[in-house]
């Protein structure tokens, strides 16, 4: 490394965040519950972001948290939660030779990584973070100059690719409507035009002595309401009688006369 010395603060940040990131990566592989895996990978991402910030790349660090931790992992969690609260992955291998293929790919990837990083450390001479950042007057300005300068085409093509993918997902999940969606106004007009009872039915009459749905409600004139009893109970004629005295009392309270007309039970 041709850069400056590593300060004490930076060393502490590296060892703490680095350790946590590795723990997160291991935990993600080891844990059995999918949600725990997602949480561990979120931990890794946040710690990587801290390392980016410590390495004078604050923009990358923040975007890493907003995009990966905040949006991508959140969508993962969302899907996991929709799929099932308690579903843990089955450990049966569905693809033949999965382990061997995984091992080979892993080794290949590590060789690629080591070669790439080694090449970067050996061949390329670094100018140091401060010089790189202050070339354009700041970290964000430097990134902007690169992104909207030499790498503009690559940037735009990537954006077009992402938008195409999003459009594809939308088209694949789109369902054609048979007929225009009925508005709330139309629904409510239909409900009233049908002539059926538009609102909720009267609840059963629950008294201190009969705490059950088979007790009919009393209307203000003292008669019992058939609608307050669930239909199956009515069909079986399994309806509790209401004490005549109760009916009389309600009628008295509501100021009606003490005649027995209108009583149906």
């Amino acid at each position: 490394m041709t850069g400056g010395e590593v300060g004490t603060g930076e060393a502490i940040v590296f060892w703490v965040s680095g350790t946590l990131a590795v723990i997160g990566a291991l935990g993600m592989v080891i844990s059995r519950k999918a949600v725990h895996s997602a949480l561990f990978i979120a931990l890794t991402m946040v710690n990587l972001a801290i390392l980016y910030v410590a390495n004078s790349a604050p923009f990358l660090g923040m975007v890493q948290i907003i995009v990966y931790t905040g949006a991508v992992m959140m969508l993962f969690l969302f899907v996991l939660m929709v799929v099932g609260v308690d579903s843990s992955d089955s450990l049966i291998e569905t693809i033949k030779g999965q382990r061997v293929a995984g091992l080979l790919l892993g080794i290949g990837f590590s060789i690629l990584l080591i070669a790439g990083i080694g090449n970067g450390l050996m061949e390329t001479s670094s100018v140091g973070l401060n010089a790189a950042n202050s070339a354009q007057g700041g970290n964000v300005e430097g990134l902007a100059a690169l992104m909207f300068g030499p790498y503009l085409i690559a940037f735009e093509v990537t954006a077009a690719l992402l938008i195409t993918a999003a459009m594809g997902a939308m088209i694949l999940t789109h369902r054609e409507r048979w007929m225009p969606k009925r508005t709330q106004r139309e629904l409510s007009q239909d409900r009233f035009a049908s002539g059926e009872h538009p609102g909720q039915l009267p609840p059963p009459g629950v008294y201190a002595r009969h705490n059950a749905v088979d007790t009919p409600a009393l209307l203000p004139d003292g008669s019992t309401s058939d609608l307050s009893i669930p239909e199956p109970l009515r069909a079986r004629e399994d309806v509790r009688d209401v004490d005549h005295a109760d009916i009389e009392e309600v009628r008295q309270l509501s100021g009606g006369s003490s005649s027995t007309e209108g009583e149906d039970r």
């Binding site: 946040v46 604050p58 907003i66 905040g70 959140m74 939660m81």
Partner: peptide, 28 residues
């Protein structure tokens, strides 16, 4: 303060959501 501190607030807010989501999930 640092060059991207408004993004920092956004980032922290998106971590804060984890609290709500995990609370919902872990309550069983």
């Amino acid at each position: 303060d640092f060059p991207v501190s408004v993004l920092y607030v956004l980032a922290i807010a998106s971590i804060g959501v984890y609290g709500l989501v995990l609370a919902g999930w872990s309550s069983g």
